[in-house]
Design a protein around this nucleic acid. Structure first.
Lengths: 130, 130
DNA sequence: CATATAAATGAAAAAAATTTTCATCTGGAA
DNA sequence: TTCCAGATGAAAATTTTTTTCATTTATATG
């Protein structure tokens, strides 16, 4: 389970595993690219400041990634790869699984850059908006 | 030139081409993924509110894209494709040209989604941070 | 070329988002 | 258990973004 990996990482890096941090982790794991508001809604008992701080910590540990695709800040589990479909008409963001990225074809991209993950955003118009 | 295409689009959509908008467009064109602060620095004569409104307009017209890769909101020309290398150590963002994405391999991604552009973020560790 | 007018601008104020401060509390090592 | 560095929460401060409204201006039209 991803939760155990996360709590292990937190402890390994000298931080405490608190109920608040667990609550935020569970909230994040519940759904990808949630807004601050959605995450907060999933941990009613946790103060706003703590949510901010926890997300900062998780991002620093490489467990969570913060990104804004035009509709405000959103957070997602920092999985190896991640693919979004973004409609420029209605702003909806959906995910897809099949990976159309082949980084092997990049000969020494960036001169010694060590790749760990990637995120692809495909922009266009969804079927509803056409 | 991209400026002419942009001003044409602005006029075509019933908006006015003002000196302020031209200044913001030139600022944006000067460099990719700039922060609000940097853009404002490049158009000293333009009020902050106008910069915000202009960026909103340009985003709405599909000329500019707003995105946040973890270090605050940034803006970039909405080119067809765009590839970033993001170091999780120091947060540096650099660009690369060669496109490792092949969307043809996605059979009808998202059921009728019409693709217009894409943006790829590759996360990892830069040579300096290793 | 003049002018009418809808749209655009800027300054100030308001609202929203995020961070800091500081007193209190607690996970987990010893 | 006890201890204490690290974590939390409430309030305040700061930063970022949006709204309001009086004034100005690009541009379509006569």
């Amino acid at each position: 389970m991803a939760l155990e990996r996360a709590t292990g990482k937190i402890r390994d890096c000298g931080h405490k595993v608190t109920p608040q941090r667990l609550a935020v982790l569970r909230a994040i794991a519940a759904e990808q690219h949630q807004s601050m508001e959605e995450i907060r809604g999933r941990c009613p008992g946790v103060g706003m400041v703590t949510v901010y701080r926890t997300l900062d910590l998780l991002a620093e540990l490489g467990l969570v990634r913060r990104l804004d695709l035009g509709d405000g800040a959103r957070y997602e589990l920092a999985e190896d790869h991640h693919h979004h479909l973004i409609c420029e008409g209605c702003g909806s963001v959906t995910e897809f699984e099949q990976c159309p990225v082949d980084l092997r074809s990049l000969p020494r991209v960036g001169g010694g850059f060590e790749v760990r993950a990637h995120s692809l955003e495909v922009y266009g118009t969804c079927s509803d908006c056409r």
